[in-house]
Design a protein around this nucleic acid. Structure first.
Length: 273
DNA sequence: CCTGAAACCTGTCTGC
DNA sequence: TGCAGACAGGTTTCAG
């Protein structure tokens, strides 16, 4: 489900309150519980994992790529929501045993953080050093080091199809299927172009388009589609994603859908060359 | 290095 | 109404 803007929305909500409910900063942990053991991304005995939590405190929440990072000194709980993961904060009095709940942390004050994930693709890590999990992750697209110059330098070395490169988390961390389609449309680049074929001007446009769509996504709390993810509004601003057959807002040509690297790609055949 | 296929999963929607 | 098939905001692993 979530890409960078959706994950960022989760992080802000966990810190300051919002979509997920009450903030969780500085709450003291009573206990943790795990309902689907394979949610753990590492091979630690479940007992050891769960036994670590009581008495700890959530001191910060942050994001790296599509990962949520809970700072629970002296360790870090890292969560990847993959396709269908969801986080919510609810009070003790809420109905427990909600379908597809996989993990939860209950606080002494009666609130609890719940990780719900119908498709069971989501994963969590408990580590001393977050870098261990992020070792292969690429650049943060909203950081100051992500510039057109960086893209010219690095994208040129890649022979991949540009749509696939944008989805490659070891290259840029955080872009998913929605925002790659939207960025390529905004830059006027066909998703099947080779990265090393792009002109300087096209690379510059693409860089700015990436920053632009991600920021727009964050400003609207991400995109909500179908039954997954809630609270977002960016879906009302899609130019191409989920719009196959509908007229391009720029030129009227029907938006097309194709498959690139096993993912659907939506584009305007006239505006994107 | 790059591509494609398959695997991991459950839910929803479409068409017959 | 039922049922098969396609499809879904992601990532990893393996074959070629």
């Amino acid at each position: 489900m979530p890409e960078l803007p959706e994950v960022e929305t989760f992080v802000r909500s966990l810190k300051f309150g919002g979509m997920t409910g009450e903030p969780i900063l500085n709450r003291h942990i009573h206990y943790a519980d795990l309902f689907w053991p394979r949610t753990l991304a590492f091979s630690d005995a479940d007992e050891n994992f769960l036994a670590w939590f009581p008495g700890k405190t959530v001191e910060d929440v942050a994001r790296r790529g599509k990962y949520v990072i809970l700072s629970i000194p002296p360790k870090f709980l890292i969560i990847h929501l993959r396709m269908s993961g969801d986080l919510r904060v609810e009070s003790k009095n809420s109905r427990i045993n909600k379908k597809h709940d996989r993990f939860l942390i209950e606080f002494y004050d009666g609130y609890r953080l719940v990780f719900n994930d119908p498709r069971k693709f989501g994963r969590i890590w408990l580590v001393n050093h977050p870098e261990d999990v992020f070792q292969r992750l690429g650049i943060e697209p909203l950081s100051s080091s992500f510039t057109a110059a960086w893209m010219r330098e690095n994208a040129r070395k890649k022979k991949k199809v540009i749509k696939t490169l944008l989805l490659d988390q070891t290259f840029i961390a955080g872009i998913g299927n929605i925002y790659s389609d939207e960025a390529l449309f905004q830059a006027g680049i066909h998703p099947n172009r080779k990265a090393d074929d792009l002109s300087d001007a096209e690379i510059d446009q693409l860089t700015h388009a990436i920053q632009n769509v991600l920021q727009a996504g964050i400003a609207l709390n991400g995109a909500s589609i179908d039954w997954v993810y809630r609270g977002g509004n960016f879906q009302h601003h899609f130019q191409v994603y989920h719009r196959s057959g509908e007229p391009c807002f720029r030129c009227g040509t029907p938006i097309e859908r194709t498959v690139i690297g096993q993912r659907s790609a939506h584009f305007c055949p006239k505006c994107q060359h």
